[in-house]
Structures are given as structure tokens and as C-alpha cells.
């Protein structure tokens, strides 16, 4: 196959994945500032069950249906998290681990049960496990891009409020801000991005797309607005690099005369790309701090 202009479809998919990476990095920076990064993990691990139930209940297997089910399950998981903390005196970390384990267990049980029984659409669920961006249609990519754009707009609007609540919730509450409401809004945004990131990174690894970019971005800056922007940029680059690698890898293998890997999952490659950026960022951050210390 000759290397020509990339197909329109490929461009749209890359654009959608780029938007998801950008929005995940931006929302992730809010989760990190509020010191609740694991909320993303709890939400993500519940999504598989929601997508499976969506297939079973509605019989549909298009992306909007799957993602709607996934979002409902993610929000249910987060509600369970709140209830566990409030009514069972379970600590935050234990409650999170519980939701992750149970949510993911239910999802895997449903998915494997449906595959075994040959339920139509069960195969599509597998793509949600580790991410399979190549399976996206242009229309699906447009959907996740639109959701991502909406999320970015909300963050841009409420960054002042989110920053205040994350930095000093007592002061915020004392001066009249509804701290719980702002917190819930951030959590819902995180859940939405965990769901929108599913096609690209999968339920197991989408958390990395939310958490690694802000951790890396924190190494580059000491201010909130630059942190949010850099985090979004890192998410974008990691997502696009991961998807590109998964698209190129089979061709490279083909050229080298190796057996081309089939249906290569994008999630792990996205995480590897993000981790590489994190490694560079940590080195830069150390240098930056040392230079700052020299200058007093």
C-alpha cells in the first residue's frame, strides 16, 4: 500500500481522539487539584457494566447508546461511593477500591456472559476494555469530540470557582460558595471524560489519560491556568501518539516481514505515550526547581 493522503475518516478519528485527550487532561487537572484523582478510576471501572447493560436492555450497539449506559453506570458508581462513605464509615480509599472492584467485576461478568451466549454487540464491548480507536466511525469520533468540547467549555467557565474550592474549601464555604455543588460538578465532569475516553483508552486505562497529564504538567508550572492548559496539551499529544502508534504498528510489522498484530488495543499505547511525557517532565521539573533554588 502506498503512503498517500490519510483518508477523511482517519483524520476525523484522530481529531476526535485529540479532543478527548485535551479534555481529559484539562478535567484531570481539576481532579488532581481537588486531590481526588481516584474518582476517575472508580467511574471508569463501572463503565463496562453500563455499556453491557445498555446492549442488553435496549438491544442497540451504537456508540451513543453504549456511552449513555456507561455514563449512567459511572454516575451510579460515584453515588455508591458517596453512600458508602456516609453510611458505613468506610474510608475514602477503601470505598474507592470497593467500587472499582465490584463495578469492574460486574462489567466483566456481563461482557463474558454475553460473549459466551453470542449476544449481538458483545464483541463491541471488548473494544471498551482496552480501547480500540480504529473501530471508531467518523460519526462516533464527532460525538466524543463534541462532548469533549462541551466539557472544556464548562471548565473554562468555572475555573475560578473550582480553583477556590480546591485550594481552601473552608474559606470558600465561609464566603458563601456551595462547595458540595462545585465538587459534584467536578466529579461529574471527570465521569463524563472517563466515558468519552473509553473508545480511545478503554475502561482499565482511561484513568491514566485523566491523571498522568496533570501530574506531568505540574512539573512545568506553578500556576493553575498554565497547569490546566499544559495538562490538556499533554493529554492531546499522548492520545494522538497512542492512536497513531496503534495504526502504524501493523504496517511496520508487515514491512519487517513479521506477523501484523490484529486489532491492536490503543489504551496501552496511549498510556505509554503519556508516561514518556511524564518522564521527561519530571526531569525538567527537577532542573527547573534547582534553578529556582539557585536564584533564591
Amino acid at each position: 500500500m502506498s503512503v498517500g493522503l490519510p483518508a477523511y475518516n482517519t483524520l476525523v478519528v484522530v481529531g476526535g481522539v485529540a479532543a478527548v485527550g485535551l479534555a481529559a487532561g484539562i478535567v484531570g487537572s481539576l481532579a488532581l487539584l481537588r486531590k481526588r484523582p481516584l474518582v476517575a478510576d472508580a467511574a471508569a471501572h463501572c463503565t463496562l457494566a453500563g455499556a453491557a447493560l445498555a446492549v442488553l436492555v435496549t438491544g442497540r450497539r451504537d456508540l451513543p447508546a453504549l456511552l449513555t449506559g456507561a455514563l449512567a453506570a459511572a454516575l451510579a458508581g460515584l453515588a455508591a461511593l458517596v453512600l458508602l462513605r456516609r453510611f458505613t464509615r468506610t474510608r475514602d480509599d477503601a470505598a474507592t477500591a470497593l467500587v472499582i472492584g465490584v463495578g469492574f467485576g460486574v462489567g466483566l461478568a456481563l461482557e463474558s456472559g454475553m460473549t459466551a451466549r453470542g449476544v449481538a454487540g458483545a464483541a463491541g464491548l471488548e473494544n471498551f476494555l482496552l480501547g480500540h480507536a480504529a473501530a471508531l466511525t467518523a460519526r462516533d469520533a464527532g460525538l466524543v469530540a463534541a462532548v469533549s468540547a462541551a466539557v472544556v467549555a464548562v471548565v473554562a467557565l468555572g475555573l475560578k470557582e473550582a480553583t477556590l474550592v480546591a485550594f481552601d474549601p473552608d474559606f470558600a464555604a465561609a464566603s458563601g460558595w456551595p462547595v458540595a455543588l462545585v465538587d459534584q460538578a467536578v466529579v461529574v465532569l471527570v465521569a463524563v471524560m472517563a466515558v468519552a475516553g473509553l473508545p480511545a483508552a478503554g475502561a482499565v486505562l482511561v484513568t491514566a489519560l485523566v491523571i498522568i497529564p496533570p501530574v506531568a504538567a505540574r512539573q512545568w508550572t506553578d500556576r493553575v491556568a498554565p497547569l490546566v492548559i499544559v495538562s490538556g496539551a499533554i493529554g492531546l499529544v499522548a492520545a494522538v501518539a497512542g492512536v497513531a502508534a496503534s495504526a502504524v504498528a501493523p504496517r511496520v510489522a508487515d514491512r519487517l516481514g513479521l506477523a501484523p498484530p490484529r486489532g491492536l488495543a490503543t489504551g496501552p499505547l496511549v498510556v505509554l505515550a503519556a508516561t514518556a511525557i511524564l518522564a521527561v517532565s519530571v526531569v525538567v521539573g527537577r532542573l527547573r526547581r534547582r534553578r529556582g533554588a539557585d536564584h533564591g
Partner: peptide, 21 residues
């Protein structure tokens, strides 16, 4: 927390500013 001294002092004006301003 990644905020400057100025950022923190400005937080004192947020309540008067209200939502999103």
C-alpha cells in the same frame, strides 16, 4: 498548591464578583 500570592489574595474578592466573573 499551584497559585501565586496574588492569586490567593484575589480569592478574597471572589464572593463579591459572583459566579463566573
Amino acid at each position: 498548591f499551584p497559585v501565586s500570592v496574588m492569586d490567593v489574595v484575589l480569592m478574597g474578592t471572589y464572593a463579591r464578583l459572583g459566579w463566573f466573573r
